Amino acid sequence: MKRNIDNAEHYNWGAECDGWILSPRPEMMVIQERMPPATAEKRHYHNVARQFFYVLSGELTMELDGTYHSLPSMSGIEIPPLGRHQARNDSGADVHFLVISSPTTRGDRVDLE
């Protein structure tokens, strides 16, 4: 089935962020997310899941194990299992990105701080 944000399952997270589940499979989950300016997720890690964040538009800041990475559109970063990370939007515009997780992160997230 063709998927996009118009027909995918939608959820809100954080204060003002959006997520659309494009592929809900247990072996690989694909989510498109939108973060408005000045938003951030809770710093966390996953015991098993490996993730890849790919920026579609805007600029995402990813903190991974204490190092900050600026990710402009059409670039991404891999997060290994146990990698402590936090996605942030430090810019003045929305950022849209894909999060590909293998396997799914459902039940595999440990929040920090």
Rank of each mutant, 00 (worst) to 15 (best):
I79K: 11
H96A: 02
R50H: 10
A87V: 07
R109G: 04
H44G: 00
V55T: 01
T105H: 14
V48W: 09
L71E: 11
H46L: 03
T104F: 06
V110C: 08
C17Y: 06
P24S: 10
A38C: 12
A40M: 11
P37C: 06
L22A: 03
P24M: 12
E59V: 03
H69W: 04
H46I: 00
D18L: 04
L64E: 02
E16A: 09
V95L: 07
S101N: 13
P36D: 00
G107P: 00
F53C: 10
N47A: 11
N12R: 02
G66T: 01
P81R: 11
P37Q: 03
P72I: 08
I31N: 09
Q86V: 04
Q86K: 10
I31H: 05
E9N: 07
E27P: 09
G14L: 08
G14H: 10
N4L: 01
P36Y: 02
Q32M: 07
S101F: 14
L64A: 05
L22M: 06
M62I: 14
M35P: 05
L64H: 12
S70W: 10
S102H: 05
P36T: 13
R84D: 09
A8T: 11
D6K: 01
D18P: 03
I100Q: 08
M35Q: 14
M28W: 07
R109N: 13
V110L: 05
P37F: 04
G19P: 01
D65L: 02
L82V: 15
T39A: 08
P37S: 07
E27A: 07
L22F: 12
S75D: 05
D111R: 03
E78W: 10
D6V: 07
R106W: 08
L56H: 08
F97V: 03
I31Q: 09
Q51I: 00
E63V: 06
L60P: 02
G14T: 10
H69V: 11
L64V: 03
L22Y: 04
D111Y: 03
E41F: 00
H69K: 08
P81G: 10
E113P: 12
D90F: 06
S70G: 07
D94M: 07
E41C: 01
W13S: 09
M1F: 12
M29Q: 08
V30R: 00
Y45K: 14
P37L: 02
A49Q: 04
G58I: 00
A38W: 12
L56P: 14
V48G: 02
D90N: 14
I21F: 14
S73Y: 09
V55S: 02
D108K: 04
Y54K: 04
I31S: 01
T61G: 00
R34N: 13
E78S: 15
H96I: 12
R34E: 13
K42D: 13
H85Q: 13
G83Q: 07
I77A: 13
G107V: 00
T39L: 13
E59D: 01
D18F: 15
